[in-house]
C-alpha cells in the first residue's frame, strides 16, 4: 500500500521493473546511432573538400542524420523519460500539441528559402544569379 501514498491521481500502479537491461540496451542504441551520425558527418566533411561537391549526396546525408536524430529523440522520450510506459491518454496529450511543429518547421523553412530568392533577384526584378560560392578555407596550420 505504500505505493498509494505517491498520488491520488494514480489509479493503476505499475510494478517497478526488476533489472536495468532495457536502460543499457537503450544506451547502446543511442551510442551506436551517434557514432553512425558522426560517420555521416565526416563523410559530409570529406565531400565538401572535393572540388565539385555532390550536392545531392550532401542533402541525402543531411536528411539521414535528421532521421537518425528523430530516432534518438524517440528512444530518449519513450524509454528514459518513461513516456512509453504511460497510458495512451497521457501520451496523446503530449504528442498532439507537438505535431504543431510539423507545419511550424515547413512554413518557416519555406519562408527562409523564399527570402533568399527575393534577396538574390531584387524581389523578382532580375534573374537569379547562381553564383557558386567556395567553401571556407581550412585554418592555417591544419593538415589538408
Amino acid at each position: 500500500m505504500s505505493q498509494h501514498t505517491i498520488s491520488p491521481e494514480i489509479t493503476y500502479h505499475s510494478a517497478p521493473s526488476e533489472n536495468t537491461k532495457r536502460i543499457w540496451k537503450t544506451f547502446w542504441i543511442l551510442s551506436v546511432i551517434t557514432l553512425v551520425e558522426l560517420g555521416i558527418g565526416l563523410a559530409i566533411y570529406n565531400i565538401h573538400k572535393e572540388a565539385q561537391p555532390n550536392q545531392a549526396l550532401v542533402h541525402f546525408f543531411k536528411g539521414m542524420v535528421t532521421i537518425l536524430t528523430l530516432a534518438k529523440a524517440y528512444y530518449i522520450i519513450s524509454v528514459f523519460m518513461h513516456l512509453g510506459d504511460e497510458i495512451r491518454n497521457f501520451i496523446l496529450s503530449i504528442a498532439v500539441p507537438m505535431s504543431l511543429f510539423v507545419w511550424f518547421i515547413i512554413s518557416m523553412i519555406w519562408e527562409g528559402d523564399s527570402w533568399r530568392n527575393l534577396k538574390n533577384t531584387d524581389a523578382g526584378s532580375r534573374p537569379a544569379k547562381t553564383e557558386m560560392v567556395k567553401p571556407a578555407a581550412v585554418q592555417p596550420g591544419a593538415p589538408q
Binding site: 559530409i44 565538401h48 518557416m108 523553412i109 527562409g112 533568399r116 553564383e131 560560392v133 571556407a136
Partner: peptide, 21 residues
C-alpha cells in the same frame, strides 16, 4: 526554427567543420 529560416535565407553559411575543429 528561427536559426533554420535564417540559414535558408543566406547564400553562404559558415561550415561547422571549419568553425568547430
Amino acid at each position: 526554427i528561427a536559426y533554420g529560416a535564417t540559414r535558408f535565407s543566406e547564400n553562404f553559411w559558415p561550415d561547422p567543420n571549419h568553425v568547430f575543429n
